[in-house]
Design a protein around this nucleic acid. Structure first.
Lengths: 346, 346
DNA sequence: ATTAGCACTCGAAGGAAAAGAGTGCTAATA
DNA sequence: TATTAGCACTCTTTTCCTTCGAGTGCTAAT
């Protein structure tokens, strides 16, 4: 990443100070504050001049004539990029918090969101891993009663899906055995995309009389595993109330709504997964976000891996004056943690 | 239900008018308004006298000396009880809305919450049916790989649960077959409560060498089906912003938080299911609610049945000045709808 | 190049005044 | 006797004005 701004060291330091201070207070910051806050030993007047320059360059903004300055999106962006360039590593007590409830995957992810929300004081989301490229591991058909069979589908990573299929005729044990054999000899090891029409036709052919059932089952597999199933767990949505600039207007409403409906959060997940750089961490500031209702926020996302192309997204949504440093550290830690938990589980 | 208030017809009419008007406007209502609003043809002065009486009797309240009156909890209670006494029936287009997405149970319930929220403009919740008294229908153990077997548990009503159990030794086909036989000869038809320690001991006895696995599986069944799993779907939490008396203070925060964490909503479900009257509809006004953070709200709940003792809860949370009439109608309709959908499915 | 000093701007906070809504009480009325 | 008109009173809400303070930009001095 190139940090190609035309700023000299002093301007950079002042900008840094403005942003950092604003992150803490949430109030516009004035020249006198900076004069004391930094170790530059400059008078407020000098700072004022520099700040006027920074404003011309578009890094900071004056909400009104006689207020201090707040960072612009461009300013935040520079700040974040600088952070990105640094390397950090730090493991905190999140580990224990996480492992406490590590049970089934949905529990883990729910817990992850919660831990993250508590640790950062922002709203958080965690998406269940998408499994487009994931492979089938095992299929089992069982007779539940006369007209219903249950299909249990296990994917790599032990993701389990069920589907009840209704059948016309009652099937005897032999046939069930045959169907199970058929499915389990050909399908395991295949990914969803590989199961195409030709494949399905071939299987149906082999199934003979039961071709219809095989069709139904395969159809069920397809529809069950479609990405429409993309689960998203959220926590700490009410944290937005902690930041006046978000809770004032009705933007809080929009954000919380997005969190409840989850529809829009999928946008973020999609977008995040489509790019891949920055050690998997991405930051959307203000209007950069894929979701319009969050234009007054910043969104920080990270990708976690589950092997075999399965990946999910962790996201933090907060005010633009987000504590990027802390958030990115925490996110990185959690990411690593999830990677580990899931890989150990297998 | 006894409507044992000591109110004459005129007082009742005035109280009714006050409440109804307040429900619409959200503002305290004065004597002049009532004078015009009702068909009593009384002057504001007379109304004033009556209202003073009603206040003495505790049915209405004056927020401050020179304001109109608003209903007290006791007033609402009377109003609601009167509504309860009426019979209503009405099927609206909810039916189509519901069936549109009727697929798997969680989808149905999610959709139900949404439809309800849109139809009423309040926050809504729907709990998945609890299955304490529900019976096992079918169990299937399958080998997934060397050290893992998957237990698929199907309950009456086709509720499916999965659990991966890790085993020490690899099990051969014969043993798997034997275990499946064992489980499926004794367990189906039993309810969770019936599977007690003696039962477990007997099964372990029969399992011989594999007693440990049986133990694990049974334990898994127990823990998988425990009410901690009680899923709750919510929608329209942000509707609270539509009612100033809820959105002003930080009570909106508390309510929305309760909706996100869902923990507290369980209280409501529990409480609702423990009682059974009023055609399954219950109303908690203000402090009557089981959840403290909703003391400024009213909560209306209904119970839907799924046969075999399985039942779930639908709830609406809104301001005390809720449109009880509409809500109860809608709730009753949806309740019926859910009953039907689920029974047809089986 | 830096800084001190100062006039200026503009929002926030405070407070008085006016407006408005509604009451309770009394006296008049049907 | 029940109802109503009238009026003084109370209390909130709104509006407008003032003051205060934080911060600026500019100029002149260092």
């Amino acid at each position: 990443m190139e940090l190609n701004h035309g700023l000299d060291d002093r301007k950079l330091k002042i900008l840094h100070a403005v942003i950092k201070n604003y992150l803490e207070t949430g109030e516009p910051v004035g020249s006198r504050t900076i004069s004391k806050y930094t170790d530059l030993n400059l008078s407020s007047a000098t700072i004022r001049n520099e700040m006027a320059d920074l404003e011309d360059l578009g890094y900071i903004i004056q909400p009104h004539t006689s207020a201090g300055r707040i960072p612009s999106d461009k300013g935040y962006r520079l700040y974040v990029d600088m952070l990105m360039a640094e390397k950090e590593q730090e493991v905190i007590e999140m580990r224990e918090q996480m492992l406490e409830k590590a049970d089934k995957m949905d529990k883990i992810l729910k817990q992850a969101a919660k831990v993250l929300a508590v640790n950062t004081n922002y709203a958080t989301m965690v998406s269940a891993p998408t499994m487009n490229r994931n492979k089938l591991k095992f299929i089992q058909l069982s007779q539940v009663d006369e007209h219903q069979i249950i299909a249990v589908i296990v994917m790599e990573g032990n993701i389990i899906k069920n589907k009840i299929v209704t059948v016309e005729e009652t099937l005897n044990n032999e046939i069930m055995l045959k169907l199970n054999m058929l499915l389990n000899t050909s399908l395991p090891g295949m990914s969803i995309e590989e199961i195409n029409l030709g494949m399905i036709a071939a299987l149906k052919e082999q199934a003979g009389e039961q071709s219809e059932i095989i069709g139904d089952v395969l159809h069920a597999i397809g529809s069950t595993i479609q990405p429409e199933d993309l689960e998203i767990y959220t926590s700490g949505a009410t944290n937005v109330f902690k930041y006046p600039e978000l809770s004032d207007n009705h933007s809080a409403q929009e954000i919380i709504n997005a969190f409840e409906e989850k529809q829009m959060l999928q946008e973020i997940v999609t977008q995040t997964l489509s790019k891949e750089d920055n050690h998997g961490i991405q930051v959307y500031i203000g209007n950069e976000t894929p979701v319009q209702s969050m234009k007054d926020c910043s969104v920080v996302t990270a990708t976690y891996e589950l092997g075999e192309g399965m990946q999910g997204t962790i996201g933090i949504i907060g005010p633009k004056r987000m504590d990027y440093e802390h958030v990115m550290k925490t996110l990185k830690t959690l990411m690593t943690e999830l990677d580990e938990i899931f890989h150990k589980q297998e």
